[in-house]
Design a protein around this nucleic acid. Structure first.
Lengths: 148, 148
DNA sequence: TATTGTTATACTCTATAACTATA
DNA sequence: TATAGTTATAGAGTATAACAATA
């Protein structure tokens, strides 16, 4: 990248190291709360987008079909989702969030939002503004990347 | 958080969702290159900070001692690190990066830096500046959090 | 007795290959 | 034959508990 911003201060490598530290931290905080990253992500998607076929969910989450079968099995065992047989195509399985699963996602998300907000109180206003702009921008980028 | 920035546009919850998407994406890209997140992080640390005792490395990486024993065993098997017996305290094991391990970290880091730079070319200048400010600021926060 | 590291065991998450049931 | 999902198997990564060796 050839612009003043990248050349002064924030090299790609420095940003990558920063990013790696962030990811590491988030993973640790994430796993602490009793819901794994994989479960949290899949359950969040089911909450946002409604019931989905297992294959569709696997593709959306970027994992293999067997991996999703097993994740759904664990989440079903824990009462977070249920499998619903499709009436028209009997090969298909619809996965839907239970009330308890949806509650758990909501609770965790608000806990984490609070934790992030507490963290961000330690930033100065300029940095805070930067975070509010940067995170959605980056998320938009990777979303575009994922659908390539 | 009670300020204009958080109230207008970037709620904590939206930012958390954005963050989760980023983490998910980075993990996938990360794992693709043949070096796991755990190995990459530990190896990067050994490169930056030099040889360390196994317990120290485990604490720094935020994992248990047995987890680090096993990670080091796998990395040693793959020729990325070596165990060096300590002469003064014979209970201790020093873990150090091999040349091949250090090379791999350097190569991967520059690949990822390039990937990030290519991604960031799609942002407008304002967003790009925001990312360059936000990532190091957040990394600094979680580093402070980790040492609490 | 305390510390360092390993081994034993168990769980989550992931993949590929082989399989079953339905279309 | 093709598609949806499961089962079988293997490996990484994690944890706690029990252990060995050294201090």
């Amino acid at each position: 990248m050839h612009n003043e911003v990248m050349e002064s201060g924030g090299s790609g490598e420095e940003l990558v190291v920063a990013f790696e530290q962030l990811v590491r931290y988030v993973r640790q905080v994430n796993t602490a709360g009793g819901l794994s990253t994989a479960a949290s992500s899949a359950l969040g998607r089911l909450g946002r987008e409604g019931p989905q076929r297992l294959t569709e969910l696997a593709r959306a989450e970027g994992v293999s079909q067997p991996a999703m079968t097993q994740l759904v099995t664990r989440m079903e065992r824990d009462g977070l989702v249920r499998r619903v047989a499709s009436t028209d195509d009997r090969r298909c399985v619809l996965v839907e969030s239970t009330d308890s699963g949806a509650d758990l996602v909501r609770r965790r998300r608000s806990e984490r939002a609070e934790a992030l907000e507490r963290l961000m109180e330690r930033l100065d206003p300029k940095e805070r503004t930067a975070v509010v702009i940067a995170l959605p921008a980056l998320a938009r980028l990777v979303q575009a990347e994922a659908s390539d």
